[in-house]
Design a protein around this nucleic acid. Structure first.
Length: 289
DNA sequence: GCTAGACCATG
DNA sequence: CATGGTCTAGC
């Protein structure tokens, strides 16, 4: 379940393996992997990979075509997507980019929620760089509806706070809304709310300014801590993150700890459903109201 | 504008 | 049969 920290680890790993390489051949082995794309992957042949950028959980490769035009190749890992270099014989390889230097980048995805999509650039709304890893104020069309994430230097925290407080739904749902704030998935949403001491069912529009800034701080810390951990456990042989393994090494305080004692107060962690998602919280440290 | 369903493979 | 991220369709 790659969320922002995992996707950023993948981006950093990809830099070593694909930067300034030229695509000799791009092929797909299942139609589904390019379902979000208007054109087939093999149209990328001849392009050179100039950058690997990220916003939230979305990645894109900036590709310079032989004509000099730049266009993005968008990649979303879904729940189980991985990139690997020169992997052969593994199951669930849905696509691969072969480079002129003889190396190959393979896209593997067991649950097939992920995808690759050659796309077009559109200008960013604020004319600032589109995300981490790029200076271009241009964003792939498929990513243009995704909000900036908490680790984006061009995030406007005041505007974000205003948006959050305008929502008439639970704060947990708002945290998961990628059009409001990106990069946070079910696991880090629970962790951020626990850290901030905020009940997941609290209406977003009932939060005080102080609570919103505390939540920003908590969520940012949770993402950064995880990014540090992911960076160290990252295996550079594979440009990938094993979707599940990383979480076992991380110290989770709420997610998946149903019935276990809260690490702060000892009360059992409760599990409820919010917006169809399993939600874990401490009934004492995260009081309603 | 917000919610519920669809899409998948695995345990 | 629940899970999880995102898009789509519905109210």
């Amino acid at each position: 379940m790659p969320e922002l920290p995992e996707v950023e680890s993948v981006r950093l790993g990809l830099l070593d393996h694909v930067l300034s390489k030229e695509i000799a051949k791009a092929e797909t082995f299942s139609e589904r992997v390019t379902r979000r794309s208007a054109r087939p992957l093999n149209t990328l042949a001849g392009g050179t990979l100039k950058a690997v950028a990220r916003r939230g959980k979305f990645l894109w490769f900036d590709i310079a075509e032989p004509t000099g035009n730049h266009s993005p190749l968008v990649a979303h890992l879904g729940m189980s997507g991985q990139f690997r270099v020169n992997c052969s014989g593994l199951a669930h390889i849905h696509a691969s980019l072969a480079f002129t230097d003889g190396t190959r980048l393979d896209f593997i995805d067991q649950r097939t929620f992920g995808y690759l999509a050659p796309d077009v650039y559109v200008p960013t709304l604020d004319n600032a760089a589109a995300g981490v890893g790029t200076e271009m104020p241009m964003i792939p069309h498929l990513v243009s509806h995704i909000a900036r994430d908490l680790l984006d230097p061009h995030l406007d925290p005041v505007a974000l706070a205003v948006t959050i407080v305008s929502k008439h739904t639970s704060i947990k749902k708002v945290l998961l809304d990628q059009a409001v704030i990106s990069g946070i998935g079910n696991i880090y949403a629970d962790e951020a709310l626990f850290d901030a001491g905020i009940h997941p069912l609290l209406p977003a529009n009932s939060l005080k300014g102080l609570e919103v800034s505390r939540l920003f701080m908590s969520a940012t810390n949770v993402l950064e801590r995880s990014l540090d951990a992911g960076g160290t456990s990252f295996d550079s042989l594979y440009v990938s993150v094993n979707g599940e393994s990383g979480y076992f090494e991380r110290s989770l305080n709420a997610y998946g700890r149903t019935g276990l004692p809260c690490r702060t107060c000892g009360q059992p962690i409760e599990q409820i459903t919010v917006g169809g998602r399993s939600t874990h919280f401490c009934p004492h440290c995260q009081r309603r109201q």
